[in-house]
Structure formats: structure tokens, C-alpha cells
Design a binder for these strands. Structure first.
Length: 547
RNA sequence: GGCUGCAUCGUCUAAUGGUGAGGAUAUAAGAUUCUCAAUCUUAUGAUAUGGGUUCAAGUCCCAUUGCGGUCACCA
């Protein structure tokens, strides 16, 4: 076979040599030790928690080393592509504070190694495809889907490994130049296959987290270019990560088994392999059978990044959460460095866990309270307002109308050493804080459980009579106690527990009445503090209804 | 099925081959002279199984089991 002639026949439009193409993607000028990483999502419109997980690793590795982090859109499968998916992805990454130095943007490209959308790099792949054909390392295959299905059936029946290799590749491999010319003249669709060697050798690849991984060397004639001339993931990955000079390839462990193909291509093209880092899959407990399983797009809403956006889970919270999963020493570091940005944490691949972690929403909730509690009220306000303006416009209006009151409310219970931890998510915050605004204030809890109507009227009348908005918390509580005793309620809850028949109730009932009247609920923060956030007029108005 | 990755409390994990297997979270009980959110005490709770190597194994080796991945003109 005349490989040169075959290459010309298959790629008549390719005029550039591989040297010329490579010269257009020169070495990056970076300081010693700088890492170049990327994420390569496919634009399906669905952004995974796993996407962010890998993005965070890649971003940290690059930026901690003074390197480059870029975005490449892997859109080689046009069947899966969804309109507007690139924008969705960029928005999601932006929401979670992942910033790219170069790569695809909503408008186009930013950077010297583009295009950053694989479909637009078709000509580049063809240069290397042509070279592989010239070297006798690739050949066209005209087999139809039906023929491939038949082969697979035959292989399954014979308990052989499925795929195109060995004698199953004979038919296409043995085509003469004349036959190929004929097929092409007839416009028969073809794919370009890698011409693998039949071998039982093993390869060993160093994975940055897993250590040495041993696998059988590739002996499959896998597809390099599909019939539309677009490369498969495998070919595109090798060409792009070489030309764009990625030093580290961070991706999910589902790629581990195709690693031999990639190693094969890097070897044959004479390129240096990047450092591979195959991350563990995020898992979840299956409610049906109690087993550990992969997060599934259909059954698990918390898999979608949009879930975290819709719930209003703060960017910082998601980072903290993922970092605790990513590096086992993160929590320890956080404890030793409270108040420091997570960006200061020295992230290392060595500390990465290799077994699949379970997404534990309990843990997320705990981290969430912790993180938001530690935020300055101004920051809480800004982030919360930002979320509301996208997901709850009415509340956003309230927040801007009552900005000062909201800031004061966010300070409630923040004075001492043990600050309150009320807020978990922005969505929940709207609910939790609703009693501070007349527009959203409702009485949710029943006051009948606290005392009968007669006592209630007496209490509120007396309370308002002696109420002095200027009282400090001590003086205020003394008055509450006085009224409590006067009404025949136990001032000490323990007394009531001991002698329930001697009292009409305890101070707990009294304060609960106050709380319900003031906030609409029996469980709420400190009455005295809340009163001062609301102001005297509102306090008198809300309590007056009951007197 | 072939190939392959992983395996410590429910969950996330720590432990140069050598301490009573430690922490966090969750759960339960108690404390905090007003609820709740917290906070503090305490408790429950793990090296998947079976062999080997070694004075000594959670740690090294082998097998079994379990869970995952992959075997497309999908990524």
C-alpha cells in the first residue's frame, strides 16, 4: 500500500505539515513549575457537580503554581449539543467563582491557542490524521453500522471481546488503494481507524493520585475520525492537550479505561504525555437498596449545579464542601486558619482521595451554617440580595427597601462568643427572615397552646403598659418576670415542672406568646434584640393586636 | 463476560509496619435559671472475609466478596 497516496486521497485539502501546525502552537512562556490545566466539558446544557469538582482541582493546580487554566469546549458530538449550553456552563462556573485565564467565552475565544471549540479545530486534527495515514498508522474503514452490529453479535455469542481488532479488522485493513478510491468516488461514508498492533504487552502509567496504573496495551482499531470528519474524544484529547500544552489532565475515573488509547497516540505521535489525574466519582446512597451508587442525572437533583444555584447555596459553601472532599487535611487546615480565604489553602494532589466520595447533604448544611455565620453582615446581604434578584425578585425588593433593618437583623445574636447559626441557604434565609418585614410577616404558630385568651389579653395589656423601648436587655427581662409572677405563672421553668398544679404555666409560655406575637413563631431569636431591629412602632403594633 | 479502579465508625476521613485505631459530621442523652439556632459534656459507632509475609499488619502479598468504571462513528 502506498501510504502517501492514500493520505492524499483521504485528505486532499490538508496542505500544512504537522511541523507547520505545531509551530503555530509554540511552547508557553511560563515560570518553572507552572502548571497548565483545563476543563473540557461537552455542551449538553447540564452542568454536573462533578464538573465543578474537577474544575476546582484544575483551577487550584494552575493558579497555585502561577500557571494557566483554560476552558475548552468538547463539542465533537453534535447530537448531544444543546443550544446555549456554553453560556449556561460559563455562567455556572462564574457563579461558583471559577475563573478562566483563557479559552472559550460566550462571545468567542480568548487566547493564543484557539480555537477552543473542538468542532472548529477540524483542520488541525486532519493534519495529524493525514500524518498517521502516511506513517501507515491509520486507515479508512467503510463498514456500515449493520456490519459492526453483526460483528458485535458474533463476538458476544462467542464470548469474545467486542471491538474491531485482529481478524475483525482484516476486511477494512486489506482494502487496496483502488478499492478505497472506488468507495470514495461512490461517496461511501468512512471513518479513520487507528491501526493497532496485536499485543499482550502491558503499559504502566503514573497517575498523580493513584500512583502506577498497570493496563494492557491498546490493541483495538479504535476510531480517530468519525464519518463527518470530526475526531472522537480520544484523538481530540491527544492533539489538543499537546498543542495547548496542558501539563496536567484532570478528569473523572471513567476515562481510566481508555487511557491505553491515549498513551498509544502520544507515543506514536512522538509527544510527551501530560500528567494524568483521574479523580474519583461522586457517589450517593441509593434510597431504594441502601447501596453506594454513582450520582445519576435523573434521580439526584443535587447532582446538577443548577440545584445549588436554585437553592441559593453560597459559592463559598460549595467550595468549602468540595475542598473537604478533595483534600483530607482541609478541615484541619480550616480549623487552624479560621477567617482565611479557602484560596490560601495549599492544595495538593497527593492528599486527594481516590475512593468515590458520597455527597452528604448533612455535611453541606453544617458547613453552610458555619460559613455564613462567619461572614460579615454586609457580605451576607450582598450575596443574598444577588441571589434574590435572580430567584426571588419580590424578596429582593424587600431587601433593598429595608436594607438597614436587614443588616441589623443579620447582626442579631452575633454579639457574643457563640454567634447564631440560623442561615443555611439564601432560599431558606428568605423564609427565616420573613418576620422582619410587614409584607411577609405571618403568624404561623398557635398561641392557644401557651395560654387562654383571657390571660393573653391581660398579659399583652400589661406588657405594653410597662414597655419602655429604651430598656436594656436586663431591665426588659426583669419586667417580663414581674408580669409573669403577677399572672400566676412560674418565673423559673423548673418550678413549673416540679409543681405544675401551683401555676398557670411558666415563663416559657409567656415568652413564647411574646415571640409569636412579635415574630409569628414560637422559635425565633432573642425577643429584646428583635424588638430593637423592628423599632418601637412595629413592636407596639404587632403586640397591640392581642391586647 | 473481558479489562480495570476502589474498600477504616451511617457519612467524610486520620494513623514512617509498632499508643487503647484519632478527628469531623450524623444520631441519642444531659447542661446552659425564656424558645429556637448555637455552644459545652457524655454515649453509641469502623479496619469486608479468608489465607500468607513479619517479633509485630488497618498498613505489604494472594484469593474471595462487595461497590464502581469501561468495552460506540458519546464524552
Amino acid at each position: 500500500m502506498d501510504n502517501k497516496a492514500l493520505a492524499e486521497l483521504l485528505f486532499p485539502d490538508v496542505t500544512e505539515t504537522r511541523e507547520q501546525t505545531e509551530a503555530r502552537f509554540p511552547e508557553r512562556q511560563l515560570p518553572e513549575g507552572a502548571c497548565v490545566t483545563r476543563i473540557g466539558p461537552s455542551p449538553t446544557g447540564f452542568v454536573h457537580l462533578g464538573n465543578l469538582y474537577n474544575a476546582i482541582i484544575a483551577e487550584r493546580i494552575a493558579h497555585q503554581s502561577g500557571g494557566v487554566f483554560y476552558l475548552r469546549i468538547e463539542d465533537t458530538d453534535n447530537k448531544r449539543e444543546v443550544e446555549g449550553a456554553v453560556e449556561t456552563l460559563i455562567n455556572a462556573m462564574d457563579y461558583f467563582g471559577v475563573r478562566f485565564d483563557e479559552g472559550a467565552t460566550a462571545e468567542g475565544d480568548n487566547g493564543a491557542y484557539g480555537p477552543y471549540r473542538q468542532r472548529q479545530r477540524r483542520d488541525i486534527y486532519h493534519v495529524f490524521a493525514k500524518w498517521l495515514v502516511e506513517q501507515g498508522l491509520a486507515y479508512p474503514c467503510f463498514m456500515t453500522a449493520e456490519e459492526l452490529d453483526a460483528i458485535r453479535e458474533q463476538q458476544t455469542a462467542a464470548k469474545e471481546n467486542p471491538g474491531i481488532y485482529g481478524r475483525y479488522a482484516e476486511k477494512s485493513r486489506s482494502l487496496t488503494l483502488e478499492e478505497i478510491k472506488q468507495n470514495i468516488a461512490e461517496d461511501k461514508p468512512w471513518v479513520l481507524r487507528y491501526k493497532a498492533e496485536m499485543t499482550d504487552e502491558y503499559i504502566e502509567v503514573k497517575d498523580a493520585v493513584r500512583g502506577a496504573v498497570k493496563m494492557p496495551r491498546n490493541s483495538m482499531d479504535f476510531v480517530l475520525l468519525k464519518s463527518d470528519g470530526i475526531p472522537t474524544y480520544h484523538f481530540a484529547h491527544v492533539v489538543d492537550d499537546h498543542l495547548m500544552h496542558s501539563t496536567h489532565v484532570i478528569r473523572g475515573e471513567e476515562w481510566l479505561s481508555s487511557l491505553p488509547m491515549h498513551v498509544e497516540l502520544f507515543g506514536k505521535l512522538g509527544w510527551e504525555q501530560p500528567v494524568y489525574c483521574h479523580t474519583a466519582t461522586l457517589m450517593k446512597i441509593d434510597e431504594e437498596n441502601g447501596g453506594k451508587r454513582k450520582l445519576s442525572k435523573r434521580k439526584d437533583p443535587e447532582l446538577a449545579l443548577s440545584y445549588y444555584q436554585q437553592e441559593g447555596i453560597s459559592r463559598d459553601v460549595v467550595w468549602e464542601f468540595l475542598l473537604t472532599l478533595l483534600n483530607s487535611n482541609y478541615e484541619e487546615w480550616r480549623l487552624a486558619n479560621p477567617g482565611v480565604s479557602y484560596l490560601e489553602f495549599p492544595y495538593t494532589l497527593e492528599k486527594m482521595s481516590i475512593s468515590g466520595a458520597l455527597v452528604d447533604l448533612d455535611k453541606l448544611r453544617d458547613i453552610s451554617k458555619e460559613v455564613i455565620c462567619a461572614m460579615q453582615p454586609e457580605k451576607v446581604y450582598d450575596e443574598w440580595y444577588g441571589w434574590c434578584s435572580e430567584y426571588n425578585r419580590e424578596f429582593a425588593d424587600l431587601l433593598s427597601k429595608y436594607k438597614d433593618r436587614t443588616l441589623a437583623a443579620l447582626n442579631v445574636g452575633k454579639g457574643g462568643k457563640k454567634p447564631r447559626k440560623d442561615i443555611e441557604t439564601w432560599k431558606q434565609a428568605c423564609d427565616f427572615m420573613s418576620f422582619y418585614y410587614d409584607e411577609t410577616f405571618t403568624v404561623a404558630d398557635d398561641m392557644n397552646e401557651q395560654a387562654d385568651e383571657e390571660t393573653r389579653k391581660q398579659f399583652f395589656a400589661k406588657y405594653l403598659e410597662t414597655y419602655d423601648h429604651a430598656d436594656d436587655s436586663q431591665a426588659w427581662f426583669e419586667k417580663v418576670r414581674a408580669i409573669t409572677a403577677e399572672l400566676g405563672f412560674a418565673v423559673k421553668p423548673k418550678d413549673f415542672k416540679k409543681y405544675p398544679d401551683s401555676y398557670k404555666g411558666s415563663i416559657v409560655h409567656i415568652t413564647n406568646m411574646l415571640r409569636i406575637a412579635l415574630t409569628g413563631r414560637a422559635n425565633a431569636p432573642d425577643i429584646h434584640e428583635v424588638s430593637h431591629v423592628l423599632g418601637e412602632d412595629i413592636v407596639r403594633a404587632r403586640l397591640g393586636r392581642w391586647a
